[in-house]
Design a protein around this nucleic acid. Structure first.
Lengths: 230, 230
DNA sequence: ACAAAAGTGTTCCGCTTACACCCATGT
DNA sequence: ACATGGGTGTAAGCGGAACACTTTTGT
């Protein structure tokens, strides 16, 4: 990684959403030797489209290609990132520091959110990271810079777009039950939905294909499995 | 203007919307000695918030402060702006060119749209401009770079947000008739709306205050004037 | 038989749409 | 009186919300 190949003062931060155990989660790497987490992010090569850069960063963290991505906002307050935090993160890991580098100056960061199938992700730990883990959206760890704010904005956008963008297609496995889809929606919106009306609303969209019954061994009628129509 | 004070490879482009003569218009400066127009834009000072930069750029062009502004997208395809066009624009105006400057390299541009009261704007001509004029959204001149695409995206965002953001408040004068507001909505959405239902819908929002009758001298009932409630 | 959860028919309500009529004003 | 356009009453239609009933499965 030669710092000269990147556009200075510009970064991309990704909010990677996954869904597991009835919780909406985000993938966050922990900074080595600090009680601090960050958003998975990176810089943009001078020859690279923004979206390419975001895809590259995501692949580094999740091992997945062609991830569903949406740019949602660009964060550019002059004081949003302090060089102090950046230096601390590098010092504590015995990296060399060139004080004059733009790395320690002001940053503009372009926010993308990604929707991934939790079960397909193999999290990878970056060079600056101690580990990279999923966190429930309601129990986030200590976040650096304005990253908590960025997650909040990503979540708001996700909610706002929920009816337009086929969110379920990207957060759920190939097949799923109506209940799973409902819980996903409830989790994102953070409010309960009526089972009967939810079922009808989704089916009336004509985006789901009913597959077969799923026998869970539970003491009740087996639910159908559904998948999204291509 | 010392180029060193700005964040390199980053620019802000503003789509300034105004409303006049039943048309939605955008304010576009013409490049001197070329059959080319651009969006009013500029660079971001290293010490400046993005939004501050956008406000500064807007004040330079319109003379207005505290303009209604929304960031809507960041454009970052690697080939979206060619140094060739930039050089042509400077050469034709006898500016000196430093080939190595980031000015001629790749740009990431943050798009803001602004809503202004047409009647209050006193357009100002920038140093690179021949003049700065309003253009009907349906009859745009020859635009440089990807600026036509940026305007399109701004317009889509404006339409999408029309019911949430009090667009009329910013595009219309202090007082206006219901018909004027309706024509504004129709123009933005590019489709006819029913007079009776539009009136009721807007009034039911409880955002308008009825002032007095406006005697136009026309051969019909005088319409009320309205203004937005603070 | 019963409990639990899935699936669906039906009703009610509110908002949008459409059609209608009345009102104010100038010719 | 009449034409023109503003303001509003009212009914039809549509989609969402709420309720209830049926279906399927394991204990």
């Amino acid at each position: 990684m030669d710092i000269e190949n990147y556009i200075p003062h510009l970064s991309i931060d990704c909010v990677i959403f996954g869904f597991h155990g009835e919780q909406l989660k985000v993938l966050l790497p922990k900074v080595k030797r600090l009680d601090t987490w960050t958003l998975p992010g990176g810089y943009v090569l001078k020859s690279e489209d923004l979206e390419e850069a975001a895809q590259r960063i995501l692949e580094e963290r999740t091992g997945l290609k062609d991830i569903y991505l949406e740019q949602f906002y660009t964060f550019g307050k002059a004081k949003r990132s302090t060089g102090e935090m950046m230096k601390k993160m590098l010092l504590v890991n015995d990296f060399e520091i060139d004080e004059s580098s733009w790395i320690f100056q002001r940053f503009v960061s372009i926010g993308y959110y990604a929707l991934v199938d939790f079960s397909k992700v193999v999290t990878k730990t970056g060079v600056y990271d101690e580990f990279c883990e999923w966190y429930d959206i309601h129990q986030l760890p200590n976040l650096a810079f304005d990253h908590a704010e960025i997650i909040q904005k990503a979540l708001e956008t996700l909610r706002y777009m929920l009816d337009d963008k086929l969110v379920g297609l990207n957060l759920l496995p190939e097949t799923f039950t109506m209940k799973e889809l409902q819980i996903l929606y409830q989790t994102i919106l953070d409010k309960p939905l009526r089972r009967d009306n939810f079922q009808r609303k989704i089916l009336s969209m004509g985006i789901l294909e009913r597959i077969e019954k799923k026998f869970t061994g539970a003491a009740h009628k087996a639910p159908y499995l559904y998948k999204f129509i291509k």
